[in-house]
Lab assay of single mutants.
Amino acid sequence: GEDLPLPPGWSVDWTMRGRKYYIDHNTNTTHWSHPLESGPSSG
């Protein structure tokens, strides 16, 4: 998808195989999909 801006506290990194993933430092979790690309989340 597009390179959307990341929310505060997020960063992007790549695996050893070159796969892009996103790090949420607020909750110390990692995600394969961009936080703003996922569907609407409630709460």
Rank of each mutant, 00 (worst) to 15 (best):
1 G>H: 11
35 P>R: 02
32 W>P: 02
37 E>F: 11
20 K>H: 03
33 S>G: 08
43 G>N: 12
33 S>I: 14
23 I>G: 00
29 T>P: 00
1 G>T: 12
24 D>V: 02
13 D>F: 13
3 D>E: 13
18 G>E: 01
29 T>Q: 07
4 L>N: 09
16 M>K: 15
19 R>D: 10
13 D>M: 14
27 T>N: 08
39 G>K: 13
17 R>C: 15
41 S>M: 11
28 N>R: 08
10 W>R: 01
17 R>K: 14
25 H>Q: 06
18 G>K: 04
24 D>Q: 03
12 V>M: 10
8 P>V: 07
35 P>M: 01
4 L>F: 09
34 H>P: 05
24 D>W: 03
28 N>S: 07
5 P>Q: 09
27 T>Q: 05
42 S>Y: 14
2 E>W: 09
15 T>L: 03
18 G>T: 02
11 S>T: 13
18 G>M: 04
30 T>R: 14
33 S>Q: 13
40 P>H: 11
14 W>K: 08
32 W>L: 05
23 I>T: 07
18 G>A: 03
24 D>F: 03
19 R>N: 08
32 W>H: 03
4 L>D: 09
8 P>N: 07
31 H>Y: 09
12 V>D: 04
25 H>V: 04
11 S>N: 05
25 H>G: 07
37 E>D: 10
37 E>V: 14
27 T>F: 04
3 D>P: 08
22 Y>M: 00
12 V>Q: 07
36 L>A: 09
33 S>E: 10
16 M>Y: 14
1 G>N: 13
7 P>H: 01
15 T>N: 08
17 R>A: 15
12 V>E: 07
19 R>K: 10
18 G>S: 02
1 G>I: 12
20 K>D: 00
15 T>P: 04
27 T>P: 01
30 T>W: 15
1 G>V: 12
1 G>C: 15
11 S>E: 09
39 G>D: 11
22 Y>E: 00
36 L>I: 06
6 L>E: 15
29 T>A: 03
5 P>K: 08
36 L>M: 10
10 W>E: 00
20 K>G: 02
38 S>Q: 13
40 P>K: 12
5 P>F: 07
11 S>H: 05
36 L>K: 06
38 S>N: 12
12 V>C: 14
12 V>W: 09
27 T>R: 05
14 W>E: 06
30 T>V: 15
43 G>D: 11
10 W>Q: 01
6 L>I: 06
23 I>W: 06
6 L>G: 00
24 D>G: 01
38 S>F: 11
8 P>H: 07
6 L>M: 05
17 R>F: 14
12 V>S: 06
24 D>K: 03
14 W>I: 10
26 N>M: 07
25 H>K: 06
16 M>Q: 14
12 V>F: 13
22 Y>S: 00
34 H>V: 05
6 L>Q: 03
34 H>E: 02
36 L>R: 07
16 M>W: 14
42 S>E: 13
4 L>E: 15
5 P>G: 09
3 D>R: 09
31 H>T: 07
3 D>K: 08
39 G>T: 12
35 P>N: 02
33 S>M: 11
11 S>L: 04
30 T>S: 08
36 L>V: 06
26 N>P: 02
5 P>W: 10
28 N>G: 14
20 K>F: 04
37 E>A: 14
33 S>T: 14
34 H>F: 06
7 P>N: 00
13 D>H: 15
37 E>P: 07
40 P>S: 13
13 D>W: 14
6 L>W: 00
35 P>K: 03
39 G>L: 13
26 N>S: 09
1 G>Y: 11
34 H>M: 05
42 S>K: 14
32 W>Y: 06
32 W>T: 04
32 W>V: 03
26 N>E: 06
26 N>W: 06
17 R>P: 05
36 L>S: 09
17 R>G: 15
25 H>P: 02
17 R>T: 15
42 S>T: 13
33 S>R: 15
7 P>G: 01
24 D>A: 02
20 K>I: 09
1 G>E: 12
41 S>I: 11
39 G>Q: 13
1 G>W: 10
26 N>Y: 06
14 W>S: 06
16 M>I: 14
18 G>H: 04
5 P>I: 07
10 W>K: 01
41 S>C: 14
33 S>H: 15
3 D>Q: 10
31 H>V: 04
4 L>P: 15
5 P>Y: 08
9 G>H: 04
3 D>W: 09
18 G>Q: 04
20 K>T: 04
37 E>T: 10
42 S>R: 11
22 Y>V: 00
